[in-house]
Simulated assay, not measured.
Amino acid sequence: MTTETPERTGSNPEPDTETAAAQPESPRRGRSLSVSIRMSTVLAAAVLALAVALIVGFAVAWLGARGELRDRDAAAADQRHAEQVATDYALGASTIDYNHVEDWFTRLKANTSPQLANKFDATAPKLRDILLPLKWTSTATPIAAETLGDAGGVYKIDVFLTVSSTNAQTPDGGHTTVTYNVTVDRAAGWKVTDVGGLDGALGGK
């Protein structure tokens, strides 16, 4: 009886002749990096920065000029208003009729501060004693008004008028130029706080 020896069916693996995948190379130490910027880009950025600076500077200057112009216009308007207040007062104070003295007293106190109105109340009897014997009448025409100063809204103004008057001494009448010195206070509601020159309106009496 013959015994068969079984054949080996497995085979030894063939040696791996393929090369393993290459590993990534590590960056070289000490490698320097350089950045290249075009000269045109630098110039464009510089021009843009300059343009922005010019625009901002122009805007600031323009706004400042507008503010100054607005302030100047407001100051000029206030001065004109003060001169008109002073002129209106001087015209009223120069319009006199001895037959209606009380009306004149009312005009003397019109748009004045309480302190100035009180002064006119105190001097009313003396003024009446001047007007009645003289039989004084007068009217006025404005010539000009000039602001001498403005201290914090307090205006010192000279008002020039031509006054035409008649009285017992000159019944045919006469003309004279009278100057009123009027103080107008903006903070007091454009009130007249002081006045000089009334004696000129009364012929220096």
Rank of each mutant, 00 (worst) to 15 (best):
Y89G: 03
D194P: 09
A151Y: 11
D199S: 11
L134G: 05
G196K: 06
G92C: 09
V52D: 08
P142C: 08
G173K: 03
L132T: 12
L116Q: 03
K191W: 05
I55K: 02
A122N: 15
A45L: 11
E83N: 08
R28W: 07
L108N: 03
E146Y: 02
S165D: 04
N118H: 07
E14Y: 05
V42E: 05
G200L: 08
M39W: 14
D185Y: 08
T112E: 01
S94F: 09
F58V: 08
A90Y: 06
I157G: 00
A145L: 06
R80Y: 11
D172L: 12
A145R: 04
F105T: 03
S34C: 11
W104Y: 00
E18Q: 07
V154P: 04
W136H: 03
G92L: 10
D97A: 09
L161M: 02
A188I: 00
L148N: 13
R186C: 11
A74F: 10
T177E: 13
T176K: 14
T2F: 09
S40W: 10
S26I: 15
D73C: 10
T193E: 04
V178Q: 04
G200V: 06
G10T: 15
V184W: 03
L48D: 06
D73L: 15
V85S: 01
A76E: 07
D73N: 09
W104I: 00
P27K: 07
H81Q: 10
Q169A: 12
A145V: 10
K205Q: 12
G67Q: 12
T2I: 15
P27F: 05
A93K: 06
V192F: 02
Q23E: 13
K135N: 08
T183V: 10
T162Y: 05
R31L: 15
V178K: 02
A21P: 13
